[in-house]
Design a binder for these strands. Sequence first.
RNA 1: GGAGGGAUGACAGAGCGGCCGAAUGUACCGGUCUUGAAAACCGGCGUGGGCUUGCCCACCGUGGGUUCAAAUCCCACUCCCUCCGCCA
Length: 431
Amino acid sequence: MIDLVQLRREPDVVKAALARRGVSVAEVEKAVALDIEHRQLLQEAERLRAEVKELSRKVGEARRNKDGATADELTATSRALGDDERVASEATDLVASRLRELLLMMPNLPDDRVPDGADESDNVELRRWWPGMDDGAPFPSFGDHQRVPHWEIGRELGILDMESGAKLAGSMFALYRGAGARLLRALSSLSLNRQSDAYEEIRPPSLALTETMMSTGHLPKSADDMYAVERDGLWAIPTGEVPLTSLRRGEILDESELPLRLTAQTNCFRREAGAAGKDTRGLLRVHEFEKVELFAYCTPEQADDAHADILRRAEELLQELGLPYRLLNLCTGDLGTASAYTIDLEVFSPGVDRWLEVSSVSWFRDFQARRANVRYRTSDGSTALVHTVNGSALGWARVWAALVETYHQEDGSVRLPDVLASYFGGDATIR
RNA sequence: GGAGGGAUGACAGAGCGGCCGAAUGUACCGGUCUUGAAAACCGGCGUGGGCUUGCCCACCGUGGGUUCAAAUCCCACUCCCUCCGCCA
């Protein structure tokens, strides 16, 4: 949620920033007007309530003094005022909830570093990495044996069975088997092992309350993209970010705890509404995938470092796996609702000949912290909202795809990088 | 799923419907004392919001209700504990 105080103080700044993200000026002005109206109503309601309280105090006093006549008179007056108070309060609450609804639908203010743009085609590529580039090697030219899509390799080797996934849960659900399943497990283990020096490992529930989903900004705006367990009022988490951000919801952290870094491996559920049929072959886009998330609560001053640390760790994993990738600075049109600044990592898939998003490293400023009400105690004793940052390290379905294609041998086997060998009993070749 | 008990400030723990935003203890912060520390003593010590910055309002698990007045009474829900049932 954006900062109401900032909206009051510098409405033009907010209007300009949100206009970059396609929020109309009229929308912002409506919020400003509702805020003014709300405060006026609030003053009146509180004035009446103060009077009722004062009268009630006097009623009690009169009763103690056995002055029944005065007490009855005051009671009557207070009762009438109470009716007025109720009306005023209801009017106040109505405006407050309208304002809240409006604010909940508004996206975060984009950072200055975010380029303007309409959609993903306007994202700005920052740089690329590939094995050997430091020694002057060119971007790899992939052989014909690497130009085979992962779903074909997966079927050939019996390690990926999309048909069975569909049989069990419908299309766009994957089923890994044998070495394919083991590879998935190895990737999560590898990542979690790499993060253990600085990030506490968490195993959160896969389902979340509506309130939990609200805190990250996934609800109310993106309800159609979430799986709902309606009967119990729960939602399947689309990312580990959801439970991690709410882990300390409503709490005041001590500044000495920050940055508080957490990591979690979770399954991520996404309905991908409207995506049916497009770029959905194999593992390109699935309804459920495994991901390791990195997350930090931090002070505003720590946010840049925390963001850089997550990005570095995600990059290091891709480098260890030897997969070429690129970094994109997301433009205003592609930025997630809650994010102020996001760097995407895309791995290259030679078999599909496309770049695949495997991580989004985002800084949310205090947008999520305001919704989740996570604050910290500063050294001078006051409280302030924390900043949240998070990123994947990594989303495994697409990494799995890129690995299988990149390391596909001419003889049809897949020889995985040595870093994974220990997870395969020493020989990470799938035949 | 059934029966019972509970939920109050950082923690522990009081709180006959009316000077209760809340006793007391611990922790914490400041001070006195001390060579220093401990102990003792003194003082301070929740979070939001509004505006005329001095006041007002809200918050005692959550949401309703009763009342002139609710931490306190009523209803529903959630969570925790104990017991029974079921179960990976």
